[in-house]
Design a protein around this nucleic acid. Sequence first.
DNA 1: ATTACTTATGAATAAATGTTCATATATTTT
DNA 2: AAAATATATGAACATTTATTCATAAGTAAT
Lengths: 116, 116
Amino acid sequence: MEDKEYIHIHEDVVAQVQSRLPEEAKLYDLAEFFKIFGDTTRIKILYVLLQQEMCVLDIALLLGMTQSAISHQLRVLKTMQLVKFRREGKTILYSLSDSHIENILNQGMEHISEEE
Amino acid sequence: MEDKEYIHIHEDVVAQVQSRLPEEAKLYDLAEFFKIFGDTTRIKILYVLLQQEMCVLDIALLLGMTQSAISHQLRVLKTMQLVKFRREGKTILYSLSDSHIENILNQGMEHISEEE
DNA sequence: ATTACTTATGAATAAATGTTCATATATTTT
DNA sequence: AAAATATATGAACATTTATTCATAAGTAAT
């Protein structure tokens, strides 16, 4: 056995599937996007903002977490453009930047609710 | 100042939002669910299986990764019920277990494709 | 039964990630 | 200008997670 050949492999099918695959960078970005939803704190923040524009301290109080922890996570959400914000006096009010987000949350919620 | 009072806080609104929030466990599960999509390798595997039922070694070849790495990730996908499998002789063929998955992938892909 | 092939798994390592703590920045009020 | 309020941030620490390596387990063929 010279190199290591896997006899069973159907190179034609593999090649075809590969050619139809979205480009690497796109799949990477997609994973990065979903990664945002893969944290309990961020999910909670999103669900809060789904209902109500709110400031950092209120969210922290509501979730029983520190201001710092929430602020760090809001930064992630802000960077990834999932939330926007506006200043009102001393406080900064955060809200969802996009109604798309709601669809994705609902779709996921629907899925996990259908499990046996 | 006795304890630490945040004057700005609107406890009524906070309480209302909190009462309408899905239960803790549900939000945790949702985050766990999205976490699955938050990895490039798993995203790639899902996109492959979206097109074609396929075995471990073929996927590994197609993605240029080791058999072991793919097998480990397939286990995650299997545990979370995103893929199912059937045996055919020596090989095991994996496929998506649910058409819901495709919707979620599409929704995400749509979102990241709309960015400026 | 022995060999070959395919998949699964456990332990180890490296990398990524979330929270905390301390502190900086920014705005308003006095 | 100084004090108070609200938010942001950097470093450190602990935890999680993905891959690799070696090997076990299961199936088929000789």
